[in-house]
């Protein structure tokens, strides 16, 4: 209970300690109560401004961050790529610096390039929240999944968790693998060989296994997480057809007979019904898909509350690491920072 969360940014799960993750989840649990009240608003961030800067299409995550900010009494401003001057040729960094000149207390960024939020965190003064960067990380999704598992299972430590689908392109899978293994779960991933490379086993030190067949991943699982087939990232032919994917890797009721008796099924949404998950499961009693959405608001309230208050310690800035698998984005010099500091 004595640990706190003193970071300036939330860029990924990989760099967080198990204690920091637990602190975030504990804080989120309290915020869940606010959304259950008749007056779903607390004055904690009154007068603060949160900018949602989305370079990728998103309804759920953007709305979730917006509602979270508003329930904390912050002013939320949404900027999406189609309406921004990015279409006029402005760079990511120039866009962020212009926004920063308007004195926001937090900038929430989604970008198709891995490492984009890390880049902004190095170059800007405002706290940055990564709302998904390419195939790299999506920390608030992993936190809301962790909160949902804790709500229904009472713990994460010692659980067997299967993650099924397009692991290669999934930032949700990466963030979840980090979070769940740090908190003591065993994670098994499975999907088409082209989308689940064997090297994935090296992503974390222990607690992760790569399976060839989804039946092997689901065997005895307490939690089954299904990933969305990301049509927008399928530039090459990773599998022959959607139909074939559905037959071999879609989750059907018969699969769950292998799982633990009280297995729960999760999906980050939006779901492709009949492709990666059958409607029978998606709408069934084991499905927590809508609970995940509800918990998303609590998690984002906790993150915005802890970051946008403005009393985080500054030393953490120096420890921002370059992006993971996809490498750093851009190589701009740190000139402006020096002047501003």
């Amino acid at each position: 209970m004595s640990t706190t969360f003193n970071r300036k940014h939330l860029l990924g799960i990989r760099d967080l300690s198990a204690e920091e993750i637990t602190y975030l989840l504990d804080t989120a649990e309290t915020f869940r109560d606010v959304s259950r009240r008749e007056i779903k608003k607390v004055p904690a961030l009154r007068g603060r401004t949160v900018i949602n800067l989305f370079f990728e299409a998103s309804t759920r995550t953007r709305t979730s961050f917006e509602i979270a900010a508003k329930r904390l009494s912050a002013d939320a401003v949404n900027i999406s790529v189609s309406t921004s001057s990015v279409s006029k040729g402005e760079t990511l960094l120039d866009t962020a610096r212009n926004l920063e000149a308007m004195a926001p207390d937090c900038i929430v960024v989604r970008h198709s390039m891995a490492g984009a939020p890390h880049h902004l965190a190095r170059m800007c003064n405002a706290p940055i929240v990564n709302a998904g960067d390419g195939s790299h990380e999506h920390p608030t999704q992993a936190l809301l999944d962790g909160l949902t598992i804790r709500e229904y299972k009472g713990r994460i430590d010692g659980l067997n968790i299967a993650i099924i689908g397009d692991i290669l392109h999934s930032r949700v899978a990466r963030s979840n693998i980090h979070l769940l293994t740090k908190l003591g779960a065993t994670v098994r991933v499975a999907g088409p060989g082209t989308l689940v490379p064997a090297e994935f086993a090296e992503l974390v030190e222990h607690g992760l296994r790569v399976e060839q067949r989804i039946e092997d991943a689901i065997e005895g699982a307490d939690v089954v997480m299904i990933l969305r087939i990301q049509r927008e990232r399928q530039n090459a032919a990773f599998f022959p057809s959607m139909r074939e994917y559905s037959v071999h890797y879609g989750l059907h009721p018969s699969h769950l007979e292998r799982a633990s008796r009280d297995v729960i099924v999760m999906h980050p949404g939006p779901i492709n019904r009949g492709i990666e998950i059958s409607s029978e499961i998606a709408d069934g009693s084991r499905s927590l898909i809508l609970d995940q959405v509800t918990n998303g608001i609590a998690v984002r309230m906790a993150v915005l509350y802890l970051l946008a208050r403005g009393n985080h310690s500054a030393h953490e800035e120096a420890s921002v690491k370059p992006a993971g698998p996809a490498g750093p984005v851009g190589n701009a010099k740190r000139v402006r920072k020096g002047i501003r500091a």
């Binding site: 209970m1 706190t4 969360f5 649990e29 915020f31 509350y305 009393n311």
Partner: peptide, 8 residues
């Protein structure tokens, strides 16, 4: 200064 956990 120190941030206590927000309790219910």
């Amino acid at each position: 200064g120190a941030e206590p956990i927000v309790n219910r």
